[in-house]
């Protein structure tokens, strides 16, 4: 893994100390990352899920998106997925795709950890 990707993973572990962080390095300096047991909000059933994403070798210049969560997650009220959420595939598994592109991504400031926090905030606000 590239040093910037390793740093990002270290920051994630520090930002989510009570959660298991699963890392699978890829062949191009990046990694697939899964953070387990995250609270996504009571409007979902179940209200917790793993959230996964890819850090590419050109991180932090590259944005971190999309994110993915367990394919079994549904809105508790039975509604279908809204814009930004869709059924997709990631790392060979079916998953719910969370498409939150950062229009103002700044590689000097934004990190995989801050992006995950923003994605969780967005999920909880839906």
């Amino acid at each position: 893994m590239k040093p910037d990707v390793e740093n990002a993973i270290a920051e994630l572990k520090a930002a989510f100390p009570r959660h298991q962080v699963e890392v699978t390095p890829d062949a191009r300096g990046g990694a697939s990352v899964i953070v387990h047991g995250l609270s996504i909000g009571q409007q979902y059933s179940p209200s917790t899920s793993w959230v996964g994403f890819t850090l590419v070798g050109q991180y932090p210049h590259a944005d971190v998106y999309p994110h993915f969560m367990d394919e079994g997650v549904r809105f508790a009220n039975g509604e279908g997925w809204k814009a930004g959420l869709s059924v997709g595939k990631w790392a060979g598994r079916s998953a719910i795709q969370i498409s939150r592109r950062s229009k103002r991504w700044n590689p000097a400031v934004d990190t995989a950890a801050t992006k995950l926090v923003k994605v969780l905030e967005w999920l909880r606000s839906q």
Partner: peptide, 18 residues
Amino acid sequence: PSRLQEEALSLEERKEQQ
């Protein structure tokens, strides 16, 4: 930054992510 992310994915991953 978003195109950097997309271009770094394999063709298969891009198809998966539509």
